[in-house]
Design a protein around this nucleic acid. Structure first.
Length: 911
RNA sequence: GGGCGCAUAGCUCAGUCGGUUAGAGCAUUUGCAUCACACGCAAAGGGUCGAGGGUUCGAGUCCUUCUGCGCCCACCA
């Protein structure tokens, strides 16, 4: 029957069982009104993604929760899918085409999109297949994609709904622009990084001064110095601003300077935004290239001069610098200014600069017409829900971070100038308006601060509709074209918890989902927005709990990333250690919300444990007599007489309770640790060893079998493949462990009394082993020992269970005696309630033995000293709780006794 | 500038409601081919719990200041 090899081989089992589960539809979820639903939507990986350790961690957590709940007889749904990842995917396909010397513009929009779809069909599910390697129990029949037809309908519907509500508008704004991807980005997509830059102090020559007073004051100076980190933007300056209260410049307000290089006259204006303490207190104002300057521009009706094209190359407004890249222009300008002695100084200056989250290119604040969502109204219920505890974060601290962001939420720029994505469902009537989208302001564009278009009833030639209208509702013209832009990828992702359901009844049953498991990086991108979307479009929260796990880093603390080249490939780990080993290791290393530092050798932990489970099971299976095992433990348990049997059952149920508590609180590492300790330190190290003495007994057979069988079940969520493989070898088990129920709690098996009886036996065995080791008694030789025990019940326990001691401590004969004469010349030891003596004859060095005993004596005395000081302290006696005082008193008594007994033994040695 | 996290054995980390003897894995040392497992068994050594101050009968745990490392947010010319 038994063909289990001595080493667990994951390669032979994992794919086999995954296929088995899949073929038997164990992953599929259905409405079952008799059961409570437990649902999770997967954080959809990008179709460009390849599995990394972050995914491995994320999906292992979800899979453990789902398998646990499945066994607890919930109806578990894990909704899988992928994200179209607009910019990322477009970049990948563009790069691929570039290798063939093709630009997307060469192909045109439709042909290019065909290419992207082709790419997706070929590579888009790579990561999904990798998730399967992990054992993920997703309901694959439900596989969704954010560009599915139904899903796209939902995206359009949401856009139209927000428009109708007046929450979407189009406007000219300074947005984050990536000159490489050539698209607008949201604030979240342009993370700031600290850079060591430079602060350039540039002289702007004053024009002939009209005001006589300022002429006198600035007699010696004929310029004003401005400080900037981006000198190239000076070409678009349309003013210099100073603080109205700044005495240094008060007289100059209203005067003009000649913008160097451009030789344009610009005004000196006063604006309280300017901080007199920074730089020189005078700021160059470039409304087209800085959000603050833009605001200043609005306040003072300044001209807006855009000097760059979409690629970050200077345009016609840049004069001689036209055609240069922005950084190239920076150098040229500094050179030219230096030549003209217009640079006062250059200082090193640390500042943060936005970077594109897709390609790391330095962001250019750029003026353009984009679509925005007014977020404040959406944020309101999302704030409430978290404040009320309707949605809970694990760990709690993210609540504050979430609320802080939500309460300061800014409008969301949702239009992207790329092709791959959901095209904006906005149509323009040429007859009603000239489409102005890409007429980036040239010289002297006046901007109106109310430049928002947000009402569908306005006659402005804008038609917002899910489908292309036949004709313009206003003028009936058929000359209609669609907005060129697509929506931010996250504008589709935020609908994920409900747009993934195609069936209303299913939505009703599974929504709100139970928990969202994700990483901290996307709290704002995704989690926060899903909460807003849930309330706005479903009227209900999208999930009850948010579990935020840590970031996976390498063992030096750096974030794992392809570009740093420090990734550990999960597939390689699976190949070398097995999927279960990966799961168990990574989960054990992750305490709630802490980052996780990985190195390859850490996966040995899980592999070794898997092998331990394998071998213990293998041993038990080899020794089982299956015909005797079909009993109900609940009934049978009452008649069990063996101490070890009672003890392991007590330990098992204690463990079960601990694991349930841990899992219910998302303390998955704690659950893993608990099961590890129980299995290895209790079940294997002690119980299996004890059981070898009585393996033929029916009682031992039943307990070994039942405990193993139940333990495998609680292990299954953590080690699914391994437990399934063992289960298939376990006589009498039958079926698949995956769909077996979670063990029922049987509190009556838990017994403190049994635990403490066993404690004595285990302590004695350990001490005897220690003594053997100290005195170099060879492993295969057996010693005798004499036990002196005053405590009657302890003596009884040891008398009844002496076989255990003989077997595990290598003892031939045990003599129970109170006669000290027997003890002379023996190596001795004192533990709680028991003195033991081992006659070792001549091997024993009396001086060494004395030293050994003295050491123990000193330690005990030291302890007693602290203890008795405390017990003499009146305040301690008065203020500490009674049970603590009582415990201390008992402990002191025991120590006193112990010391006495050690002293007796010492005198024995000396005599 | 604001906020958050971390600091415990050589390394990586646990540590519950504050309760007195601070745990594990790896590594180290010693012994063991033993009939489940050497990915193993048995034993041992290893700690001023980052520093100072405070609260308390009692602090790794609570408060406070500081140091070091990491992260997030902010219209840092």
């Amino acid at each position: 029957m038994n063909q289990m090899p001595p080493r667990y081989n994951p390669k032979e089992t994992e794919d086999k069982w995954y296929k088995f589960w899949h073929d038997n539809n164990y992953f599929s979820a259905k409405i079952n009104t008799a059961k409570k639903p437990f649902s999770i939507v997967i954080p959809p990986p990008n179709i460009t993604g390849i599995l990394h350790m972050g995914h491995a961690l994320n999906n292992t957590i979800q899979d453990i929760l789902l398998r646990y709940k499945r066994m607890q007889c919930y109806e578990p749904l894990w909704m899988p899918g992928t994200d179209h990842a607009g910019i990322a995917t477009q970049n990948v396909v563009e790069r691929k085409l570039a290798k063939e010397g093709i630009k997307r513009q060469d192909l045109g929009r439709d042909k290019f999109l065909e290419e992207v779809w082709k790419w997706r069909d070929e590579y888009g599910s790579t990561i999904i297949n990798q998730l399967k390697k992990l054992g993920s129990s997703c309901d694959w029949q439900r596989m969704r994609f954010t560009m599915d037809e139904e899903y796209s309908e939902a995206v359009k519907e949401v856009f139209v709904a927000l428009w109708d509500k007046g929450l979407i508008y189009q406007g000219n704004r300074i947005i984050n622009w990536c000159p490489r991807c050539q698209t607008a980005l949201s604030d979240e997509e342009a993370p700031y990084k600290d850079l060591e830059g430079q602060l350039y102090y540039i002289r702007y020559p004053l024009k002939e001064i009209k005001n006589q007073k300022s002429k006198i004051k600035n007699k010696e100076k004929n310029h004003i110095v401005v400080a900037t980190t981006r000198p190239e933007t000076m070409l678009g300056d349309t003013a210099v601003a100073v603080n109205p209260k700044d005495k240094r410049y008060k007289q100059l307000i209203g005067e003009s300077v000649i913008l160097p290089l451009m030789e344009r006259e610009i005004k000196i204006i006063a604006d309280s935004f300017v901080d007199p303490k920074f730089g020189t207190g005078a700021v160059k104002v470039t409304p087209a290239h800085d959000p603050n300057d833009y605001e200043i521009g609005l306040r003072h009706n300044l001209d807006v001069v855009n000097i760059m094209d979409e690629g970050g190359v200077l345009n016609i407004n840049a004069g001689d610098y036209q055609g240069m890249d922005r950084f190239e222009a920076r150098e040229a300008i500094i050179n030219d200014l230096t030549e003209r002695k217009l640079i006062e100084k250059i200082e090193p200056h640390a500042h943060s600069v936005g970077h594109c989250y897709r390609c790391s290119t330095v962001i250019e604040p750029y003026l353009s017409k984009q679509w925005f969502v007014n977020m404040k109204p959406l944020a309101k219920p999302a704030i409430e829900a978290v404040k009320k505890g309707e949605i809970k974060f694990y760990p709690k601290r993210w609540t504050k971070i979430y609320l802080n962001w939500m309460e300061n939420i800014r409008d969301w720029c949702i239009s992207r100038q790329i092709w791959w994505g959901h095209r904006i469902p906005v149509y323009y009537c040429r007859n009603c308006q000239a489409g102005m989208k890409y007429q980036i302001p040239n010289y002297k564009l006046q901007i109106n601060s109310n430049d928002k278009i947000q009402n569908s009833r306005q006659k402005n030639g804008i038609i917002v509709a899910k489908a292309r209208p036949e004709k313009c509702p206003d003028c009936a013209s058929t000359d209609i074209y669609q907005d060129e832009d697509v929506l931010d990828t996250w504008f589709s992702s935020w609908l994920w918890p409900f747009a993934t359901f195609r069936d209303k009844a299913e939505l009703n049953y599974f929504y709100p989902t139970s928990v969202l498991v994700t990483a901290q990086e996307i709290i704002f991108f995704w989690v926060a927005r899903m909460i807003m979307a849930g309330f706005e479009f479903m009227g209900k929260k999208p999930f009850s709990d948010v579990y935020i796990h840590g970031t996976v880093r390498d063992d030096t603390g750096k974030k794992m990333s392809k570009s740093l080249g420090n990734i550990i490939d999960p597939l390689e780990i699976i190949n070398e250690f097995g999927s279960d080993a990966l799961r168990f290791s990574i989960i054990s290393l992750t305490s709630v919300g802490q980052d996780i530092y990985l190195s390859k050798n850490k996966f040995e932990y899980g592999r070794n444990f898997a092998n331990k489970v394998w071998n213990a099971s293998r041993y038990i299976i080899m020794n089982l007599k299956p015909e005797e095992l079909s009993v109900d433990l609940c009934i049978y348990g009452k008649s069990i007489s063996g101490l070890a049997e009672k003890w392991i059952l007590s330990r098992f149920y204690e463990t079960l309770a601990k694991i349930e508590k841990a899992l219910d609180n998302y303390k998955i590492n704690e659950a893993a640790k608990t099961i590890y300790e129980f299995f290895w330190n209790n079940f294997c190290d002690w119980y299996i060893e004890f059981s070898k003495l009585t393996i033929a007994n029916n009682e031992t057979q039943v307990v070994l079998y039942k405990v193993l069988e139940k333990t495998l079940r609680i292990m299954h969520p953590f080690l699914p493949h391994l437990t399934e493989e063992i289960w298939s070898n376990l006589p009498g088990a039958g079926g698949s462990i995956m769909i077996k129920p979670w063990p029922h709690m049987q509190k009556n098996f838990i017994s403190k009394a049994i635990d403490s009886q066993m404690r004595i036996i285990i302590d004695l065995i350990s001490s005897l082993r220690n003594a053997r080791s100290e005195w170099h008694v060879p492993d295969n030789s057996r010693i005798d020992c004499i036990l002196k025990i005053k405590d009657k019940s302890a003596r009884k326990t040891l008398e009844e269970n002496q076989l255990y001691i003989k077997k595990l401590a290598g003892v031939a004969n045990i003599k129970f005696s109170d006669d000290l004469k027997d003890a002379s010349g023996c190596v001795s030891g004192v533990i709680e309630k028991v003195d033991f003596y081992i006659p070792l004859g001549d091997v024993v060095d009396l001086e060494k033995e004395k030293a050994r005993l003295n050491k123990q004596l000193e330690a005990s005395k030291q302890q007693l000293k602290g203890l008795s000081a405390r017990l003499k302290n009146k305040e301690f006696l008065a203020k500490a709780p009674r049970d603590v005082v009582e415990k201390e008193k008992q402990r002191a008594q025991q120590l006193n006794l112990l010391i006495k007994r050690i002293k007796i033994n010492l005198s024995q040695v000396s005599s």
